[in-house]
Design a binder for these strands. Structure first.
Lengths: 175, 175, 175, 175
DNA sequence: TATGAATGAGACTTCATTCAT
DNA sequence: CATGAATGAAGTCTCATTCAT
């Protein structure tokens, strides 16, 4: 990965996240990256390829992020860490774009990246099970759905204060 | 609203919902509506105007939908009806497109239609308050966030079975 | 076929014939036709569609041209008319481009429009047969091959004087 | 001529012959030759230079091919060898591309390489003269035109069986 | 000699919008 | 009200060529 490739990826990430994939022209990406437009195509084949590269990186990062949780043995910690995923990632401008795009893009691609979440879902199911919850699988699903909802709000509702809600949810799980 | 206007709106709705606003050309809308392209502009001024018309209708329908809940006095009923909003709307192909678009469009417009939900949020806060919940406002928020998360899954994850989760959430509220 | 469509077709014909299909940009065609570039695509879908339209017209014209020969009953006349095909068509600038393109394009498309010639070939075979030639089919083929060779020379070799050769060939057939 | 230069030339030849000069990108040539794109420009200056090199080689080969005929003294042999030029060259895949390109390229370059054929034409004129033909010059021209026509068919019409026609022409010359 | 990243011009194409009919 | 031909700007992508290494 050359330096210019990185620049293209970074620029694309930011623009796709802010304006959407379709609304971002490759020329805008090139300009922002300080690079000729043709270079995008030399490195990523086409605009979709650029998006794919970003998504692939998203999956890498997600995997890395989940690793810590999946390896956790204390069930309460699993839940707590899941709820604090956002804190580890989405609370600074740089990575904001990254995760925002992952959410946004789902709607443009019309597909939910289910497989990405599976390991996390299993870990949560296991955790709830250990804690004696009645329907651990549904509990796990519900928690992840909550996170989806929170993300939707966080990224779209300006001034949305996420902290109180996270705390509130934690308290529901006795954390 | 003439018959052709309706046709345009219906076609646009379906296409915007399925392929996205940016990805849908006015010519595709015209073709699907069985109408000349120029007519779209005569009636809706421009492409954005077409979208606005759809969103405005979305707000009308939302208001109508919420009315029943807002006027409800039994707090348990308020919560139950909120959780069953989907059943009233999104479970048939025609209206699917409608509500799917409302969700999808948020991400293209980069703004959460907060005001639309306010009456519902107030009704829920009131309901939780009456039921003696500790933090009625947070409870209300959380419930709506849950619905956002459910919608995300429902519209994006093929084969997502929403019923068990709704029931599960209901049971948490003793419904 | 609107007036502008005709203009596009005429401009494309001339440019394709002179500079080749690949070497002619749609923008050049548009400029020469005095038309916006987009219009080409509205009417002909894409650049290939433009070429197809021209080729289709070529086949029409060829058919019309051959009709006279195919209907001829006097075998000597069939041969004479075939040899004078060029005189009827290719000796003025306007139609020159047209037939030149038909020849040129074969090499860009990598396919010989065999079917177009079949009726002519049958008529010639029949003629040679009536005239008692030993191998009428081969005679017919050879004559058409001669015409191909003549066209190649005529369109590519500046100052090529075709008349003496046509007369010479005629004399070989006792015409 | 280094080994890589040869590779480039061979790759270019094949691609130009198959897809045409304009339609073949230098990058495709480089890839096929297993060579970096820049190298093409170091050795041949530019894309046109590459074509020129191929054409120059075409003229060399043509000269070599014609030498045998031009030096022949028996007039019947001159004609026979001319008619069998193809047999010596174009009937195997490797050299096919070579001669096909020579024909194809004429149409992209819009010029008939007349000079290349002159020695052959003189030799034929002389032969027909010796054999007592009335118009030896026209006979020579006609024979070469026949070859052009045959080439057109041979390279463009799949399944074209050239042998019977060659024999047929030979028989016309009493060969 | 050889590479391949990088460029810039220009290719084909799409599309929202206008306008004469 | 309704059409659809026409436009012009912008979009994605290709490609010959250059240049630092």
């Amino acid at each position: 990965m050359t330096e210019k490739q990185e620049k293209i990826l970074t620029a694309a990430l930011e623009l796709f996240a802010q304006e959407g994939f379709k609304s971002t022209s490759t020329s805008k990406v090139a300009k922002k990256a300080g690079v000729s437009e043709g270079l995008i195509f030399r490195h990523f084949e086409n605009k979709d390829g650029l998006l794919e590269a970003i998504i692939r990186e998203g999956e890498e990062r997600a995997k890395a992020l989940f690793a810590d949780i999946v390896l956790e043995t204390d069930p309460k910690e699993v839940i707590r860490k899941t709820l604090e995923l956002g804190k580890k990632t989405g609370f600074n401008r740089e990575s904001d774009n990254f995760w925002k795009l992952q959410y946004k893009i789902k709607w443009e691609l019309e597909q939910y990246g289910e497989h990405k979440m599976e390991p996390l879902q299993r870990a949560l199911t296991d955790a709830f099970s250990k804690l004696g919850y009645d329907q651990p699988e549904l509990e796990a699903q519900l928690l992840l759905i909550n996170l989806d909802g929170l993300a939707t709000r966080f990224y779209l509702q300006t001034n949305f204060d996420i902290e109180p809600l996270i705390s509130f949810i934690k308290s529901k799980y006795g954390l």
